[in-house]
Design a protein around this nucleic acid. Structure first.
Lengths: 90, 90
DNA sequence: TAGACATTTAGATAATTCTCTAAATATTGA
DNA sequence: TCAATATTTAGAGAATTATCTAAATGTCTA
């Protein structure tokens, strides 16, 4: 599994996550927000999926992406751990 | 300025930040925790500095690195923004 | 001032990443 | 079943990154 840190290092992927936080979207819905090719989008979605940050389901011809909440919240914990100021260091 | 996201994408750099959260350290102090060359360490420190996450001062022959608290806390906000669940979405 | 120590810079290489086009796969509807 | 639509995979090229050794820079002490 790819690290969450690497997954969110790319601005396009952070934008995808922000979009998905607003609710599930199909690949073409997401694609409407970007200029690059579908193959490139697929590459980014693959990285997010490898990090476990998103989940997919099929709906007819479309694949619907959504944030994987449990992993997302774990990730929130991980990142806030790095950035939390040392405790008890008055 | 390099993005905080890219700066923390690398595990070595995250380890450096964790070390520095415990207090200021010289380059050689930091180096003692890693296996790679001094030049490589310098490269990583440069990235952290470009992101504004660390500050330096000279103390004789040594350069002392420390976390740049204001930028660090801004970064904490930035990352928690991405990972915060949508508000008011009951 | 010369030599030693600490760190950074320069220049090179290997690995990874982002992007593309073209082809493959999966599903739907006629 | 065929053609259209949606997405992913394959393969390749350009850019970036992590790493190294060697050289340069800055500071201290004898």
């Amino acid at each position: 599994m790819q690290s969450v840190w690497e997954a969110v290092a790319d601005p396009h992927r952070r934008k995808i996550l922000s979009l998905l936080k607003g609710g599930e979207m199909s690949v073409s819905d997401i694609h409407a927000h970007f200029d690059f090719s579908g193959a490139t989008l697929s590459h980014h979605l693959g990285k997010l999926k490898a990090a476990g940050l998103v989940v997919t389901r099929r709906k007819g011809q479309q694949i619907i992406y959504g944030v994987h909440m449990s992993v997302f919240e774990e990730a929130a914990q991980t990142v806030s751990d790095l950035f939390r100021r040392e405790e008890g260091s008055s």
